[in-house]
Design a protein around this nucleic acid. Structure first.
Lengths: 203, 203
DNA sequence: CTACAAAGTAGACGGTGACAACAAAGTTGG
DNA sequence: CCAACTTTGTTGTCACCGTCTACTTTGTAG
């Protein structure tokens, strides 16, 4: 079962169509943006009829939503991996997460845009749930910072939101060619430093 | 000349097609997003044949670029108006510009996205030039802040970029429904405060 | 007044997402 | 073992869209 299709043979059933569609779609998304992603094109690329994708994704949106969902899962993995590699010091952990996030956001620009766009449109509950994980992680980090005394206590949401907004904005500037990609990590570094200086408890 | 078309009459020449297209397109952009903007639809709405828009905009992109260009002009106007109303104190001026920008960015979400997307694609030089104004304004403000001693001297770009990124990110969070719109102005306020605290000269 | 340019019209082409009817290949129960 | 059923893929169709070409109408300048 689940044998990889031998090259040259064209069995009536593709066998991995859903996975193949997602994989090809993600590549297309990266290369041509969301507008350059056509169901018929994907079908052609996978050597399948133009209506075949419909069996797995009733809708173009459904495919995009699925991409967004796996995108959030991947983001969550990336962020947790970044945290796993660091010591316990809050500043270091914050730096690691911030860098990892903006890196993901710039290396998967179209995907990230899709993720946020899909999250809050009707029927995007699955996507929204997938997004919870990443947000929760950032909030935990903020709470840890407050516990360590590195951040002002109270209203953890606002502090976390502003930091998150800054990272998101840096990614937007890079993706929008306002800023060259080489400046990304440097900007993130000074941004988190300034954030720490600006949000630390008053002396 | 340039008489407003009387209701009921359908002169062969529309007379205000270009302006009408831009106006209708901007409304559609606001209501349905860029994907819901169809040239044929606009033509129908203006009671004109499907190929008529082509005389004024050779391309769908040309129409979108024109929208982006006027968008930057409007943004520039909004920002300068916000500055004109304030005293000379740097913190106050910064607050005013920041609030005005994020307000524009959230009230014209699809337009802003279009503006940044159009700016750096091939042939988007006119749009890019239109964008210069707004950027220059922010940079001037930063330089003023440094002159007043409210900001660290040197590398005005990075400080300005980070602030700009934060505002852009706050707008993105509001537009992405991560944050309710009522929180917008409050977030901007604390963000600029933290920015001032984080970027002021070391004592 | 006539030639020409500008602005709008009509029709066609290829591409796309959606849908319906049908066919092939697994799967399952007797 | 085979017949019903479900899953998956195919073919054909429809409406819509952006773009292009050829044509018509209108305004204008020589």
């Amino acid at each position: 079962m689940c044998r990889v299709p031998e090259t040259g043979e064209r069995p009536y059933h593709h066998g991995h169509l859903r996975a193949g569609l997602l994989q090809a779609a993600e590549r297309r998304l990266r290369e041509d943006g969301v507008d350059g992603l056509s169901l018929r094109d994907l079908a052609r690329e996978l050597g399948v009829s133009h209506a075949a994708p419909r069996r797995h994704f009733p809708d173009r949106r459904a495919l995009l939503d699925a991409l967004a969902e796996t995108g959030f899962a991947r983001l969550d993995t990336v962020l947790r991996a970044a945290l796993a590699d660091t010591a316990d010091d809050f500043a270091v952990r914050l730096q690691a997460v911030a860098t990892a996030y903006t890196r993901f956001a710039t290396e998967n620009a179209a995907l990230l845009e899709l993720m946020f766009r899909s999250k809050h449109r009707p029927g995007g509950e699955r996507v929204a749930r997938a997004a919870e994980g990443a947000f929760a992680l950032v909030n935990e980090l903020i709470v840890q910072g407050q516990a360590e005394g590195a951040l002002q206590a109270g209203e953890p949401e606002q502090a976390g939101l502003i930091l998150f907004a800054t990272l998101q904005g840096i990614a937007a500037l890079v993706n929008g060619d306002v800023v060259p990609p080489e400046m990304r990590d440097g900007l993130v570094e000074t941004a988190t430093e300034q954030f720490l200086r600006g949000a630390r408890p008053l002396p």
